[in-house]
Structures are given as C-alpha cells and as structure tokens.
Design a protein around this nucleic acid. Structure first.
Length: 573
RNA sequence: CGGGCUGUAGCUUAGUCUGGUAAAGCGCGUGGUUUGGGACCACGAGACCGCGGGUUCAAAUCCCGCCGGCCCGACCA
C-alpha cells in the first residue's frame, strides 16, 4: 500500500477538544474524525486496526466454539419491557429512543440480551440443541451523560457481544470458562498488559462477573489487587479486612451532648477527642425504584466510606443519590449534620455497614439540631439496622483473603464477562424442553469486548512524546518503507524493491512515497506509530538503509538484503 | 440534571471589553529553489464571524432566544 494513495491526513497541532492521549493522537494522525459528540468516523488506518482487532476476536471465539451472527441495531420497546429493562435504561438516561411513523417506540441497541434471547427462544426448542454460544461485532449506542475521551467513551462504538445458552449451571460454568480463556488469549495476542478483576454486574445483572482491565494511568476505573494472593477486584466490588477500631468496651448508658455547630466527623473528633473509628456517621440517600422514591439512612464507621454501588445493590434500586437538605430535614427533623440512628422516624429504612455490627458505645447523631449522642448501642438505643457490606475498600488495607496488602492501579475496562443465569430467559419466558420433558429457562451468560475502546486503550498504554506505538498485532501496518527523496532514482528503486519483497514475505507493509521533505516523513511515521520503519535515504546507492524499531526509537544501518529478515525478527521480538 | 466557559477559513487561534474596511500561523493551489527531523521565496484561493430575532446610521463585537461544543460539579453529615 502506498501512502501517496491512502487517505492519511496528519495535523500539526493538537485538536482543541482532545484531552487524553489516545484521542489526541488518533485525531492528529487522521485515524478518526469527529462527526458529532461521541460519534466518530474511522479513517482507513483506523479501520485497518479495528479489522485486525475484530479478526483476533473472531478467531479466538471461533476456537472456543462460538458462532458469529448479526443482530439489528433497531429494537422494539416491547422486547425491552419484556425483560423489565426499559425503565432502568430510560431512568439512567443512556437509551437512545425513537418513534416510528406509527408512533411505535423503538431504541437503538445499547446491548442485545433481549434480541438474542428472543432469537434463541424461537430456534432452540430442545436440550439436544444446547449448548449454543452466539456473538456479533457491531455498533452499539449509549446516550452517555458526558461522552468524552474520544473512542474511550463514545455514544456510538464498536462492541463484540456474545451470549451463551446452556441447559444448566454446570453448562454455564463451562461456557464462562471457555470465554475467560478466549478473552485472555485475545488480549495477549493484542499485546496488551491487562488484569482480570472481580466486578459488579451493574445494569446487566446476574451472579458473577469479571472485567478485563487494560492497565493505564488514564483509566477511568480503579482496581485493587493483592500481589501475594492474586486477588483483584474493581473498587466498586472490592472487599478488604477493615482497619482495626478501638474496643468499645461494655455497654454504657447513652448520653446526649450539646454539640452546637459541630457537624462533620472531623469536628466531632476534635470536640469529643475520639477517633473517627469510634463514631458511626449516618448518611441519607434518596433511592429510586421503578415505582417509588424513598429516603434511606446508612450507618458507616466514621473513618470509612460508603460504596454506592454496593448500597444500590443492597437496596436493589434503579438509582441513588445523596438526599438534599430539605429531604434530610424532613426525614430526621434536624438540620444537616445531626442525622443519626437514635429517634429516627420508622418510615426511614436503616441500613448499616458490617463494620458497625456488634460495636458498642458509638458516637452518633440523634436527629436533633445541635446534639450528638455518646455510648449509643444499636438495638438498644435505636432500631437494629439491616447489616450489609457497604464499605469502599482502600489501598493499604489487607486483602480479604488475609494474605497481603491491597495495591491500587488504574484500568480501562475493555472486556466484561457475566454469568446471567436465568434472569432474562425467565423474565422473557424463553424456555427449551428439558430431558425430563418439562420446559426450562435457558441458563445464560453474556460477554462483551469494547473493540473500538480496546484500540484506544492500546494507545493509552503504548505511546511516547512523538506519537503512537502500536503493538504489531493491531497496527494498521507493521512496517513502513520511507523513500526520503522520491526524485532520486536509487532511493525510489530500492524503496519500491523493499516494499515488494516485504509484501511477498506476507507482511503488512506500506510505502511512504509521498513528495514530502524528510523531516515531515519522520514526524508523520513516528506519529502514526507503525512498529518498524525502514528509511531509504542517502546511502541507498550503497544498498544500505536505516532500520528503526518504533518502540524506543532504536536505530541501526543495515544492508538492504537483510531487511526482510530483520523486520520479521523485530516483529517476533 | 446543576454551574461555568465557548462557537471567527480545513486546523490552531487573534479581534469582542471600548460597535466603524474580518486578521495571523499551519494546511491547500500555482511557479521556482530545496531534500536526514514538520524547508524557503513569490503569487493565489479560501469566512453569510453557529442560527434566528432585536438595538443602532453602522454589529464578529451590545441585548434576547435557539442550536452545537468544551470543562467542572452532583453535596459522605
């Protein structure tokens, strides 16, 4: 392929709206052009990379027995009400919805559980046809609150989504294990450094799930892991051994104290000369379900933080936000800063973190402006709350298996695998005839890979100040041959010759035969990030070229005759 | 959803406060000179200044509305 004929336009300056490295470099390199907020057109180079990525995904999924299909983007509302997800997705505001000429409501698919379940229910009638694992690679649509970071969080993006259908849990476990294997091979082949972490299942639902995280400082997710035991989890899901708190001792009678203008944990520490760990703070949330809204109170040890994902799961609500001042006054009868479990109205549901379970003599608010209570004992001085793990685990705390400290890293979620179970098949009445002659719901798994996001993640992880440094497996071209001065016969002849030989060797090579100055070509090729560069320049007459490995800009002069072998060697290494 | 900022040539931006002939660099075209880290010279094309309304002798500039875009925030008592 000749760069003179390929539509590649590089920008000298960074686009004004690009914040993260991958967005900046992809836009500057002409890989992508923004069409609307969070919507991009992929240029020829980008598409080559995306096709290579997709091909790796296909090969590894096919090896595990999955079959490729193609589902519609346009999906009817009734399919989404049948699974019960229409409300949640509309409530979260991420669903693109529209009406047709007959005023029938439709959405643009953000994911395809409903479509595939309906499809399989139609075709699969007997356990004899199971297991089945189907996947597609397709554009997905999510009306993100804030599309940003280029391909990292778009409103239209390419995703591979796979769905497994089994007769029982054992079958699902096997399907899940196969996908886990396939995913590890996919990201290894892509040349990415990644970590598999336990994850919250979120809006998709189901029993177990793991995320595949590409490690990069710019990642939107925080992960905690234990080097000693291998435990790793998204902070949304992670647990830990809570740091020790002082013993409360035998229960003492509760005592109310005037605490004018003392509202925060920090102020209470000073006022009572007690550590935060001896307190239980009470945080009020407004939780939303599909049919109601409610204010709930959450008790958390004073030195620890509430994990809203865990809280939402415990409440099984659609969404959650901190209660506003008016709701707090209405629920507690006190100003903000004095909420507590004591004398809390019976209408307000009371939850508590496990770290306050069994604790004695706590310092808490008591729902009276200007007062806090010492030596509060749950169940005696107030209702006994419902206990759940509602705490955010932090780096430095001990891994839940007790084997070592948790460390923190940032990650980009590029893959996610879920054990759905029968959530969708039951809701939608999707059944097959089991061996015992009775209809049974399919046991399902679902599995996603953000294809376009993975390409962006590869750049977040592999770049330098000059530009991208593609892993060879997903580079648009693995090697570029640059003819520095196309008017010099020796150079252009040797360049053409090398281009032909590399092509004959089966390598994805491009020839930079553009009429540009040498400096411009160097800058461009560095920016575009092909793994190997062969520079045909002033020593072409002698049959000598410069051989550059993009990663680290390692340069050497070598005989033209060695080029094919050296390129192959560099790509292996 | 709330707050702030912003919209001028393909891109990056100046000009807006204080109304008075739309400007620069990059990119693009033509000709010439160049050719190992974004070359140089000359000439040239390219802008309903986001859209609509208003104020004014006069609006990129002031006012109102709408539409894009960007950033931050969404309160841990």
């Amino acid at each position: 392929m000749r760069l003179s004929q390929l539509l590649v336009v590089t920008l000298r300056e960074d686009p004004a709206d690009a914040e993260v490295v991958s967005h900046r470099l992809l836009a500057r390199g002409g890989y992508i052009v923004k069409t609307a907020a969070g919507v991009y057109t992929y240029g020829p180079l980008m598409w080559r990379t995306l096709r290579k990525l997709s091909q790796i995904v296909r090969e590894e999924l096919d090896r595990e027995g999955a079959q490729e299909v193609m589902m519609p983007i346009l999906q009817p509302k009734e399919l989404w009400t049948s699974s019960g997800r229409w409300d949640r997705y509309v409530n979260d505001g991420i669903l693109f919805t529209l009406k047709d000429r007959k005023q029938t409501e439709l959405c643009l698919g953000p994911t395809h559980e409903e479509v595939i379940t309906d499809f399989v229910d139609t075709l699969v009638t007997s356990y004899k046809q199971l297991p089945v694992n189907l996947y597609q690679i397709q554009d997905k649509f999510r009306d993100e609150i804030r599309p940003r970071f280029g391909l990292m969080r778009g409103r239209e993006f390419i995703m591979m989504d796979a769905y497994s259908f089994d007769a029982d849990q054992k079958g699902l476990d096997a399907a899940y294990a196969r996908m886990d294997r396939a995913y590890r091979r996919i990201f290894e082949r892509c040349g990415l450094k990644f970590r598999v972490v336990q994850a919250d299942a979120g809006a998709i639902g189901g029993s177990g799930s793991e995320e595949f995280m590409v490690l990069a400082d710019t990642g939107e997710d925080t992960i905690l892991y234990c080097a000693e035991s291998g435990y790793a989890a998204n902070v949304e899901k992670a647990t830990s051994v809570a740091p020790a708190a002082p013993e409360g001792g035998p229960a003492r009678p509760m005592a109310k104290h005037a605490t004018p203008e003392i509202r925060s944990v920090q102020q209470l520490e000073e006022f009572f000369r007690l550590p935060a760990a001896a307190m239980a703070k009470t945080v009020l949330y407004k939780a939303v379900w599909h049919d109601r809204e409610e204010v709930v109170a959450v008790l958390m040890r004073g030195d620890l933080e509430i994990n809203e994902v865990k809280l939402a799961n415990a409440l099984n609500c659609l969404s959650l936000k901190l209660a506003d001042e008016a709701s707090i006054r209405a629920a507690t009868g006190a100003e903000v800063g004095f909420a507590g479990p004591v004398n809390l109205g019976v209408k307000v549901r009371l939850l508590a973190d496990l770290t306050v379970q069994g604790r004695t003599n706590l310092l808490t608010g008591c729902n009276e402006t200007g007062f806090h209570c010492l030596d509060v004992n749950l169940g005696r001085d107030c209702r006994m709350p419902e206990f759940h793990d509602l705490r955010t685990a932090r780096a430095g705390e001990t891994s839940p298996d007790g084997k070592g400290p948790l460390r923190q890293a940032r990650g980009i979620e590029v893959g996610h695998i879920f054990k759905l179970g029968t959530k969708y098949s039951t809701a939608m009445g999707a059944t097959f005839m089991a061996e015992n002659g009775k209809p049974q719901p399919f046991v399902m798994g679902c599995y996603g890979i953000g294809v376009s996001r993975t390409a962006a993640a590869a750049i977040e992880q592999n770049h330098d100040e000059k530009g991208m440094v593609w892993p060879a497996a997903i580079a648009p071209f693995v090697v570029a041959v640059a003819i520095l001065d196309i008017k010099r016969e020796a150079q252009s002849k040797l360049g053409e010759d090398l281009h032909g030989r590399l092509q004959a060797a089966g390598l994805d090579v491009c020839l930079d035969d553009r009429p540009l100055s040498p400096g411009a070509k160097f800058k461009d090729l560095d920016l575009l990030g092909f793994p190997v560069q062969v520079i045909v320049g002033r020593r072409a007459e002698e049959g000598v070229v410069e051989f550059v490995v993009r990663r680290g800009s390692v340069k050497s002069e070598i005989p033209a005759a060695d080029v094919v072998a050296r390129v192959q060697e560099a790509l292996r290494g």
